[in-house]
Design a protein around this nucleic acid. Structure first.
Lengths: 117, 117
DNA sequence: ACCTTCTATCGATAAACGTCTATTTATAAT
DNA sequence: ATTATAAATAGACGTTTATCGATAGAAGGT
């Protein structure tokens, strides 16, 4: 690392660097896509409501009141999380039911454990 | 839950709901603030580079080349992560050194374990 | 067939974001 | 003092985002 050699080099250049990405660009994009779909207080509350619900699933109308959001906004949040792979949607009758995609969640949890301090 | 009682009620209303937030609004905002600061491929790569670096810290100029971003852009990403509490900054001489804030990271990891499927 | 209820989609708007170039500030070396 | 280097800040620009009201579609009950 050149910064250690600063004193001995005429030009005190900073960074020859290893220049290695250290994580695949694809992986970074995939994970960041899921994180982006989570990075909102209302969405975190949606997850909390799901996991504290009796059957581990909710419909849209379960959420509008506790979140104090309109129905289209709630639908939008849910759709984003589905398309990021965090939630799964199942339509039964008139209702749409949303539950956690456990493998996606495990992937995220794994990322935070694996990328240790 | 009213959806189970649908048949017996005259108005088939959907959701009396518990209406409990199930997670503190503050907690949701704090966590989502950190997630927002992470939800970008370049920022994830910054973390990866930090944790694969010998001393677990990097300066700005370590990052511009592997990320193929300009110096102000890299500074911006780092500043956002610092202000979200994910990174810590220490200025030594001309360089600014950034390293992971391990307690913030543990808080995140804990969130993903605790909020189990 | 009609009405009601639940959800999705459309279009709009204001805010936030990622990125750049240009400039300024801080620190060190000559 | 001057010069050189590292990093931060300011300003600009195009894109994405969260939110809403209005509307459309889908499904069930009468």
């Amino acid at each position: 690392m050149s910064r250690i050699l600063t004193l001995s080099s005429q030009v005190q250049a900073c960074c020859p660097t290893n220049a290695e990405p250290a994580i695949a660009r694809e992986t970074a994009s995939e994970i960041s896509g899921m994180l982006k779909a989570l990075a909102d207080p209302n969405r975190l509350q949606i997850l909390a409501i799901i996991s504290s619900s009796e059957d581990q699933e909710v419909c849209v109308c379960d959420l509008t009141e506790p979140l104090n959001l309109t129905q289209p906004t709630v639908s939008h949040h849910l759709a984003k999380m589905v398309s990021a792979g965090i939630l799964e949607k199942q339509k039964r009758g008139t209702w749409s039911w949303y539950r956690l995609n456990s493998s996606a969640w495990q992937e995220l949890a794994g990322f935070f454990q694996f990328t240790k301090v």
